[in-house]
Amino acid sequence: MRWLQILGLGARAGRDTALMGLAARLPAAVLSQLLGTSISCATDWTVVAGNTRPGYAAEVARRHPT
């Protein structure tokens, strides 16, 4: 991150964009485990990302194995 700053490139915007993309696609519990964050932090990210998928587990359970 320091090298990016020396070059005049901010890493925060890219980090936040990547987190927002993950939070939009994954449930908070998975995001929390993946990133090693608290569940409340992961829940906040999913809410901000507009992820309103409380039925994620049910959706995964209905998938047919290929």
Rank of each mutant, 00 (worst) to 15 (best):
T66K: 00
A61P: 01
L31C: 04
R62F: 01
G36N: 08
L9D: 05
A23T: 07
T66R: 02
R53E: 11
V48Q: 13
Q5D: 11
Q33M: 08
R12A: 14
R12Y: 03
A24K: 15
M1K: 00
R12V: 14
S40P: 01
I6R: 02
E59W: 13
L4E: 07
L31Y: 02
A58T: 10
V60R: 08
A49Y: 05
Y56A: 12
A49G: 09
R62A: 12
H64F: 11
R63G: 05
L26C: 14
T66Q: 08
A29W: 02
D16F: 00
M20K: 13
A42V: 03
P65M: 03
T66Y: 04
S38K: 09
L9F: 10
R2V: 15
L4G: 10
R63L: 12
C41L: 14
S40V: 14
M1I: 02
L35E: 04
D16T: 01
D16S: 01
R62E: 07
V48S: 07
L9G: 01
L22W: 15
T52Q: 10
L9W: 11
G55L: 13
A18K: 01
Y56F: 14
L22K: 11
Q33V: 09
L22H: 06
A28C: 08
A29Y: 02
V30K: 07
D44H: 10
A18I: 00
R12T: 15
L9N: 03
A13C: 04
L22P: 04
E59A: 07
G10H: 05
R12P: 01
R12E: 05
Q33W: 07
T17M: 10
L19T: 00
A42H: 02
V47L: 06
L4D: 06
G21L: 13
S32G: 08
R15V: 01
A49H: 12
D44T: 12
A58E: 15
G50F: 05
G36I: 05
I39R: 09
A28G: 06
T37C: 14
Y56H: 10
R53L: 10
A58V: 08
G21H: 15
P54K: 09
P27S: 06
T17P: 00
A42D: 06
Q5R: 09
A23I: 02
V60S: 02
L35R: 15
L31I: 07
H64Q: 14
D16G: 00
L35Q: 11
N51M: 03
R63P: 02
L34H: 13
L34N: 05
R15L: 04
A61T: 10
Q33L: 11
T17D: 15
A42E: 03
E59Y: 11
L22Y: 11
D44V: 04
A11Y: 11
T43K: 08
T17N: 11
T37R: 12
E59K: 10
S40T: 15
Q5H: 12
I39F: 13
A61I: 08
G36Y: 07
R15D: 00
H64P: 09
R62P: 00
A28T: 04
A18W: 00
V47C: 05
G21D: 10
G55C: 09
A24T: 09
T66N: 06
G36H: 08
G21M: 14
A13W: 07
L34Y: 12
R12K: 12
V48M: 03
P54R: 13
